[in-house]
Design a protein around this nucleic acid. Structure first.
Lengths: 353, 353
DNA sequence: TTGTAAGCGTTATCAT
DNA sequence: ATGATAACGCTTACAA
């Protein structure tokens, strides 16, 4: 079995068939129709159609120093929050003739670094990245030497003055805490994955503590902080036991720092036979599609994911086009979606009586 | 503000700095170390490191007729089933030096066609596609003229002899139906999105009917077929009312053809105040992460998504490398994950007494 | 072991 | 309005 050679139609073939020169065809391809006679224009059009010619992006890119490729490096392509953003970005990219190279880092800086390098080799025209925070020098180099525009999504890198698109995590966290307090929850546990260098986790964590202090500088829940590495089997369970053991059931809530840990908490609660909201209330960041289907709905903080994705792509494309703009941060407001998992404690008592 | 020109380090810069010729550097880059003296090898290595040189994939590709790009066209990047597959594929691609161009069609053949064209322009080395079934001529052309290997995921195209990776939908459907029957469900409704040309939907739908006929050629549930376009607001609700209206609650189940419609059904049931499994049992295709969190768990048919994704990438890469293989279909077996949404009807009665 | 030169498919600069 | 030609960064005969 021999390896068949692909049929390669080049601009030269088109030129030949249309009885013109490469340059003329190139003019057509670049849409400079005013430099063409109506006749040749039509002829070229026909030939392209008939030969099914597709311009070669690699050749074009080599010459013009442009790949029509935009990189998207994300932590977890499996996370619905991430895909919602990608979906928004993808739409905008497509409209503008760019294709999206999607890279999954698993929150591993090493992988992130490798991908940055790979994307550099592909000469991407721009990069959208949800960074681990552990590859700053490489991003800087890509940005400075390669002059490749970079937009950070979701996660900041304070040291770098790149564009950023995300939400106001402090505002969102405050809103949720103050809502819980208005529902009369006295103990609010903070459940998070290891904070590390990930800015979102830091911001939310910090905001949570600040929000509590606003009420009481010695708020008991300042002790109700639980960090669980979800890769380790029983860490989360231990945290849960700890919190549930030391609080009483009437006015306690668990606040999950993202939807991944939220789901794990739900599963762990179920395996313990704990009811929501009867035994413990629940609130979480992100608003996965299933949040309304579990229990009588789970109260969540919703981010405008599609808008975030679109804005990333729009920003990157503007930068690619050389639009002069100062580095900017685009911070959307998140909204609180109130559902059954966080009833008013008083009402709740009432209902049970 | 001027547009700064990127610093572009080429193979020539490396050659100059190392005091050798481009060809020598190229030899180094291609890993043909036996053609190099230890000394120049070391020197080149140093210079590359120091200049932070990254080979240009576009130039390489233009010359070698290879882009190191693999296209992935999927129906909905927002569907957890899809992302799980992509995740698997992505890993394998990365290991082999390929980057993944991800394209979302929204099940729209027009978009699919546009993406095929775009990927063609990028001269992708291979394509993984979950097709709408509405772009066959374009796929054929890509395959034949462009000699680009194509692997179909999930959805078949009977007319085309491409590789396919997916599951045995008939076997999976049979398994589920026979399980429901062993649990003594008498009426089983089939809920699906519009079937159109999408092979998976056709196969499952067909298999469902066949499975019923195996028990009784006039099985009453042959009438319990509901097709709902989820984009239209109340279609699903109507279907549900229809089915719930004409059956009694003790031994009826709803079988959802995928996880998207499954979630919609759950939400609709909740808005009607219907309990699962008390008022109606529930089973669905795919096994989204939340399936175990809703109700006392939802019985689902799980596909080995990660394996499917990996296999796609492995197949494509083998083909790219010219490994001679006949067109092949890789059919995985799906497994039934039994959960609380489909209790045995008899046991269930017992429990309620 | 290394260098020279042609060519991959485009676009852009000159001519004409 | 159109054509010839160089150049983009790399690989690969072919020479040396």
């Amino acid at each position: 079995m021999e390896k068949k050679e692909p049929i390669k139609i080049t601009i030269y073939d088109v030129a030949k068939a249309a009885g013109v020169s490469k340059s003329t065809v190139s003019r057509y391809l670049s849409g400079r129709f005013h430099e063409l006679s109506e006749n040749t224009k039509r002829k070229i059009q026909e030939v392209i159609e008939q030969l099914n010619y597709k311009p070669n992006h690699m050749a074009r890119g080599l010459k013009g120093n442009k790949s029509f490729l935009i990189g998207a490096i994300v932590a977890d392509i499996t996370n619905p929050y991430t895909t919602a953003i990608l979906r928004g970005a993808e739409d905008v990219c497509k409209e503008n003739g760019y294709a999206l190279l999607i890279c999954n880092t698993d929150n591993n800086p090493q992988k992130e670094k490798e991908y940055i390098s790979m994307l550099q080799a592909h000469r991407i025209d721009g990069l959208i990245i949800q960074t681990t925070g552990g590859t700053n020098p490489f991003l800087e180099e890509l940005f400075n030497d390669g002059n490749t525009p970079i937009v950070l999504v979701d996660r900041k890198v304070p040291e770098l003055s790149f564009d950023l698109v995300g939400i106001d995590n402090q505002q969102a966290t405050y809103k949720a805490v103050s809502y819980l307090q208005s529902q009369h929850y006295e103990r609010i546990a903070w459940f998070t994955e290891p904070v590390t260098d990930i800015s979102v986790r830091k911001e939310r964590f910090h905001a949570f503590q600040e929000a509590l202090k606003l009420t009481d500088v010695h708020h008991p829940s300042l002790e109700d902080i639980y960090v669980a590495d979800l890769k380790k089997d029983d860490e989360l369970e231990m945290c849960l036991e700890n919190f549930l053991g030391k609080t009483q059931s009437q006015s306690r809530a668990i606040f999950c720092a993202n939807s991944v840990i939220l789901l794990k908490v739900i599963l762990a609660l179920q395996s313990k036979g704990m009811r929501v909201p009867e035994d413990v209330a629940l609130i979480g960041f992100d608003n996965p599609e299933w949040a309304s289907a579990v229990y009588s709905g789970i109260t969540t903080i919703e981010q405008p994911t599609s808008e975030i994705g679109k804005s990333c792509a729009e920003l990157i494309i503007k930068r690619i086009n050389g639009t002069p703009m100062l580095p900017q941060t685009l911070s959307y407001h998140a909204s609180l979606i109130k559902r059954g998992s966080t009833p008013s404690v008083k009402k709740h008592f009432h209902k049970e009586e």
